[in-house]
Design a protein around this nucleic acid. Structure first.
Lengths: 347, 347
DNA sequence: CAAAAAAATTAAAACGATTTGAAAATAGAA
DNA sequence: TTCTATTTTCAAATCGTTTTAATTTTTTTG
């Protein structure tokens, strides 16, 4: 394997100049730079990463812990992130080391991996309110970037979407269509994103002057089947007059809710409008649903590039930066005007 | 962070001696060794992995590619291996870098990861017959260890169980119990393990002088539901006289098959004996089934330690070694004597 | 054209470990 | 004691890169 010295010998240059030339330093002559590049190409030069890491003091590796579920599986979102992150980090010559979290103590796997002395930092996901991992990593001064936020105005590096705005956009859209009874089928409240969505939902409803019956803000839904079950329950009228519009935490849940609406003999969107937040996961296509699903959309995969950039910058000493994007609102066929009094199956 | 030099200064020793002392070289005085160890402990010395790697020429990292399924999930077995391998490799100071395979070309992710110049080798799993990854890695001279084998007498390093023997043990047990119509609900035939199980099954049946109707060697089962469906089909008699014993590829499939047997109004093991191969995955407990399941057993997790050892040895230049273990046979309540002619629901 | 300024290059140190070959300390034998 | 063996230790080289400070070369300026 060719080294900087080999290239230098070939051209009568010192390794220092060769290094500078290849790294695009401004003080190297354009002609020498081109010659160096050419010889490097010809010799198939590839920098020795380990040597680079020794001198820069950085290992070029970041860690990520997979929190596996009780059924020993991880969800689609994890692989989506993993795929995107390995690519995005690779572009910065950074590699991803994974470990599995199977313990009760959420901090332990981070400590264990850090003790191996090979990591520059961590990428965290699925933040929970008052995340203990944040406390630990901040205390130890270990760089990390969070996908999402544990709450508003956090003091650490993170990238995510404004989940309160997700609910707000949904409520405003539906309210503008004349809906007054709007329900939220939320994700698990132990996650910060679901807390934010709920908060945004309640705030937006209040801002629109609409009340929120408790049964209209259901939580803990994750699967199509759960969406179906919760949908049926909401439509049963057991807990009061059913909603005319339902906002779902994911397209998967929305699929279940739509199934429930249809099974009840009702139509989407004529009787009930349904919408959801869409992470753009490969297998859950909101357009493939019948009818095509109105969504707030923020592809999970898109988060990987900025996350990797934030991570790399942070490792190099840049101050922690918070980036909060707003999800796009895409109106399709599953939302429509609220049924008029006379048309509605309910008073 | 303390270095070798720091320890040397403290004791008036050279870094060379300190290095030798900590690495247990014989030519260092016992007293100095103890003193060095003590100071190293006190200073919290931890060797700089990157520096070690630069001088030894090894990166201390091995790669593994996750083959995710069409539904963007990976199965329990993957996480089981991942958990075990990170621990087992960690004991050798080796770390695991993961990447996701989402392409048609099974070799591409290996090439991509190798081009990053940071890996000492790969750990492969889920071998298929004539695995193209094997061809590629052998051609490039990249060290790897396979969990399992692509066939008998392979020329590369591997660790796994004898899958032909798994079927053989099952057939011999059932045959000794008087069963003559024994069926196999196999895994997906694109995997080498399923091919071996089928081969072993047919050979063992032949050795026992028993015929194998085509419908008795079903493939492509992976889930409980598939086990149930195939079980029902086999018991329907549509494809000939049903079996009196069913050998399943996994405990999950066996759970489905047992459910099918019960739904048909039959009893396990009085009417039908059921057994399976057990990878000892955390959530599928064969003893929890009703009745407790007879199995051939080889915990997946147990394979991780020898796999890691093989990998490390191979990287250090040891010749490729093949280790094929035999699964244990554990007889429980789900297998019993074949029903006598008069007792059987079939002729 | 000489002096000063700017540009380009280099030698050498550094990162922190391992390892080779030589030197020092100790032990044993004569 | 003296000489030789044997342990034990050390100085220095090495791995391949980056970076600092110094030096050389080129260009600009008065």
């Amino acid at each position: 394997m060719a080294t900087l010295k080999d290239i230098g010998v070939e051209l009568g240059l010192s390794p220092a100049t060769v290094s500078r030339a290849l790294n695009g330093f401004p003080e190297v002559n354009v002609k020498t730079r081109d010659k160096v590049r050419e010889v490097a190409d010809r010799l198939g030069y590839r920098p020795n990463r380990v040597a680079q890491r020794l001198v820069t003091g950085r290992s070029g590796m970041v860690g990520m812990i997979i929190k596996i579920r009780a059924d020993m599986s991880a969800d689609q979102t994890f692989f989506e992130m993993l795929t995107g992150l390995t690519a995005a980090l690779g572009a910065h010559d950074v590699d991803l080391v994974l470990a599995v979290d199977q313990d009760d103590d959420p901090v332990l796997p981070y400590r264990k991996l850090m003790e191996r002395d090979i990591l520059d930092g961590f990428i965290l996901n699925a933040p929970v309110p008052d995340d203990p991992r944040v406390a630990y990593l901040r205390e130890k001064g270990i760089p990390f970037v969070m996908h999402g936020q544990t709450g508003p105005d956090v003091p650490y590096a993170c990238y995510g979407i404004d989940n309160a705005a997700v609910s707000q956009d949904a409520v405003q859209l539906l309210s503008s269509l004349g809906h007054k009874r709007i329900a939220l089928v939320n994700g698990q409240l132990r996650y910060a994103y679901a807390v934010d969505r709920l908060g945004g939902f309640q705030a937006a409803m209040a801002a629109e002057g609409l009340p929120v019956p408790a049964a209209f803000a259901a939580s803990d839904a994750e699967t199509e089947m759960q969406g179906y079950t919760i949908g049926l329950a909401m439509l049963s009228g057991r807990d009061g007059v059913p909603p005319t519009a339902i906002v779902c935490a994911s397209t998967l849940i929305a699929a279940g809710v739509i199934r429930a609406v249809k099974d009840r003999g009702l139509r989407v969107p004529q009787d009930i409008s349904v919408m959801a937040h869409d992470d753009a996961l490969p297998l859950m296509d909101p357009v493939g649903l019948e009818p095509a699903l109105t969504v707030t959309r923020a592809p999970l995969r898109d988060a990987c590039v900025p996350l990797a950039a934030l991570m790399v910058a942070h490792i190099k000493g840049a101050p922690a930066e918070q980036q909060v994007e707003r999800a796009a609102l895409i109106v399709r066929a599953s939302t429509g005007p609220a049924p008029k009094g006379g048309e509605s199956p309910w008073p």
